[in-house]
Write a protein that binds this DNA or RNA. Structure first.
Lengths: 329, 329
DNA sequence: GTGAAAGCGCTAACAA
DNA sequence: TTGTTAGCGCTTTCAC
């Protein structure tokens, strides 16, 4: 083992470990000469401090735990990216733990965060999280928790989410502004509060305009969305617009429209709530209301820093939505 | 701070720390009674061992570093998932470090791995990695490195890759079998050995069939791929098939074809090398040669374990490819 | 069957 | 300006 430690450096130079330690941190007490010698040697030996020793001493690590159903696609990747970027600026790294929507793995992930004495946890609940308690108990060991996206319905936890209601009503407005008269709106899992909020807000907004027909449907995956499109576009009266609650639904809808050779936007308009990646895959690009995982990440990180610094933190914050025009409406 | 340590438990119970330590690991020396008392108390106090202390003592951690350009889409997510799954079985977690193809961040990520005394590093080079040395020097501090996907052209490093040559020639065969005569083949960054291997194998295979015209082009992102499609399909003699070296290129190509209203497969065939997600987004689904990130992850992990156990390890291994029929050819 | 003590690598209070 | 020392939490050897 060729691992270099402060001790090794101190022995070579004939000084004490603490001198080396201080020299490396550019401590004002140490003479310029000593500093130079220490730094040079450390550099040439490729010294890297042992984080575990540092953490042990500090009683916390420069790691954040990030517990999430999946890192890929449809939203979380951009959240993670932005948390990682922000964290890097402050010297933090990310311990990413995917639960795959499995409650056992989720519980275990919380334990791993505890054992690692992470500086904080970013958590997005699994669809079937049974017990939020273990998250809350992290507070006992001084680990702050920020919930994002899929958050528990609890008063006293810190949550950051996209502005669902706002996004959904913006989408409705965009459809009405284009004079759409017969709208197929496809939403996701109705169990989730996020879905119910979006439906309520969307249909209320549509209802403001008399005479618009609205068909609300649910799809749990792209395939079901494709099926819905096939069903509705074989009808006598075809929808003149399709609204997709998520990227996942959007991909299913587009596949269905392609299969039926339906031209967008000539024969029907398409509008999605999206993070922005999938709409750009198509031609014409899909018009969407953006709920940015990236922005959400930035916000979550800011909240985390406040918690760590023991500043006052707002319990619930949302990031706004905005309409991004493609050519699909 | 309510953090429970062995010492706290030992004080409550009036035994020594070492007894507690041994009791918790079910050491045979300890009496059943003591064990029970210790375990019960530890449980009720929600004791979790401090990993940093353990790592410090062990001189390594139960973390793997995973350095990758991006965690999302196009391949890596499935690799990460499988490494994480395998790792979890053995008690490992993942320190995921995204480089965003930035060489500085990549270097820094290597340092973070060193500082954390990770048990090993899984590395996929950035497109513009200038200096592989820092990876190799991890060996000096006993950190094994497994390169995957984008690997360096070095004899003595351990690499796992998709069977590029095989996949590319399978793709060529599939095109020839359909009697394609004028093929536009779009590859990625020509700097990467992976690209050059694929080109060589692909064009050699095509060359076996006399009279087939092959146009080889490069695209560094989807946009460039879209541009190439627009250029080639405005020509007098349009390609009767497009080959896409990656998912990224595929998405760009499909957007270009949609823009020009070119029917697949009637007017042109499309074939991709892919991980399987994107081809299913389109109608008809794209025929592709699958190189599985998931399988590759399993393989990489197996190699890592061998390295850690200081077993003999094959330097280069590949996972096979297979043709998945869609309706695009 | 249990305890005492050393040591992993680092930092910081205190001494010189 | 530098050194000595104690201690972070844990494991393990050695002693009893």
């Amino acid at each position: 083992m060729n691992v270099v430690t402060l001790k090794k450096i101190s022995e070579v130079l004939g000084v004490s470990v603490s001198t080396v330690s201080r020299a490396l941190k550019d401590h004002p007490d140490i003479s310029a000469l000593t500093k130079r010698k220490v730094m040079e040697l450390a550099h040439s030996l490729e010294y890297e401090p042992n984080i575990n020793a540092i953490n042990l001493r500090n009683k916390h690590s420069m790691l954040f735990g990030l517990i999430v159903p999946t890192i890929s696609r449809y939203f979380y990747d951009s959240f993670i990216l932005s948390v990682e970027e922000e964290g890097r600026k402050q010297g933090y790294s990310l311990l990413i733990l995917q639960t795959g929507e499995n409650a056992d793995i989720e519980q275990n992930s919380i334990r791993i965060c505890r054992q690692n004495r992470v500086a904080g946890v970013f958590a997005c609940l699994s669809a079937n999280t049974v017990d939020v308690e273990p998250y809350l108990r992290l507070k006992d060991v001084n680990i702050p928790v920020i919930f994002f996206d899929k958050v528990p319905e609890l008063e006293d936890s810190i949550k950051v989410t996209a502005a669902d209601a706002q996004a959904a009503s913006m989408a409705a407005d965009a459809l009405l502004a284009k004079g759409k008269q017969c709208i197929l709106a496809i939403f996701g899992n109705n169990q989730l509060s996020i879905t119910r909020r979006r439906i309520a807000s969307f249909s209320n907004q549509i209802a403001l305009q008399k005479g618009v027909e609205l068909f609300i449907e649910h799809a749990h995956n792209p395939l079901e969305a494709t099926g819905l499109v096939e069903r509705y576009f074989k009808k006598e009266q075809k929808p003149d617009a399709v609204f997709c609650m998520s990227d996942e639904i959007l991909t299913g809808v587009m596949k269905g429209l392609q299969a039926l050779h339906i031209n967008v936007p000539q024969e029907t308009g398409v509008l999605a709530l999206s993070n922005g990646f999938f709409p750009k895959l198509y031609y014409p690009e899909i018009t969407y209301v953006e709920t940015s995982g990236y922005e959400l990440g930035k916000l979550a990180f800011a909240r985390m820093l406040q918690l760590i610094r023991e500043e006052e933190v707002e319990k619930e914050t949302t990031v706004g939505a905005c309409l991004v025009e493609g050519g699909s409406l």
